[in-house]
């Protein structure tokens, strides 16, 4: 069904394309939000990715490749968002509470703050690999295809990003312990 929609959309059928947006929009938005950690920028990135997909669809030879191709456009749109807004990375951001995935009680305010700050320091490329693997559950080879980098590079980016974020939590725990001892 998806393949047929891709074929129709590539022939200019905007209704079919709308159905593709319905099918893939949520997943794209979830990925974009987690890479960008900003609701508005995630919306912009998704819109940009779908607009580019619409424009370029006639050039996509294999409709079966639509999924990875769209994700590649999305990741590139996220990179662009991050580059465009780099100087505003310190702006205050409120965690969205609407939808099924509001704040998790497992994550303390301090954890969240530490993770947010550590994630902000990661490069766009590290963020993308981390999210595509740990949130979307994609294998490294698929991620390599999406981000246009060798599997080895993807692996090392994933390792670095995971280690950095884990370290942020551990450091936060150590501060907690010290404060508890001093209290």
């Amino acid at each position: 069904m998806r393949t047929r929609l891709v074929e129709l959309a590539s022939e200019g059928d905007d209704v079919a394309f709308g159905q593709l947006v319905d099918l893939d929009g949520d997943r794209c938005y979830a990925i974009a939000y987690r890479i960008l950690r900003d609701v508005e920028r995630a919306q912009d990135a998704v819109q940009q990715a779908f607009l580019l997909a619409w424009r370029e669809l006639p050039r996509l030879r294999d409709p079966e490749r639509f999924g990875p191709w769209l994700q590649r456009l999305l990741v590139n749109a996220c990179y662009e968002e991050l580059r465009r807004h780099r100087r505003w990375t310190t702006r205050i951001r409120a965690l969205p509470v609407d939808g099924p995935s509001g704040p998790d009680p497992t994550v303390s305010i301090d954890d969240r703050d530490s993770l947010d700050r550590a994630f902000q320091r990661l490069s766009p490329e590290h963020r993308a690999v981390f999210v595509l693997h740990h949130h979307t559950g994609l294998p490294l080879a698929d991620i390599a295809d999406i981000v246009g980098a060798p599997v080895g590079t993807v692996k090392s980016r994933l390792h670095y990003a995971t280690r950095t974020l884990r370290a942020a939590i551990v450091a936060d725990s150590q501060v907690d312990s010290t404060e508890a001892r001093l209290a």
Binding site: A30, R37, P96, G99, V107, L115
Partner: peptide
């Protein structure tokens, strides 16, 4: 904690 933090947010 990392997994829970990553799951937070709109879908």
């Amino acid at each position: 904690i990392l997994a829970a933090w990553l799951d937070e947010g709109p879908d």
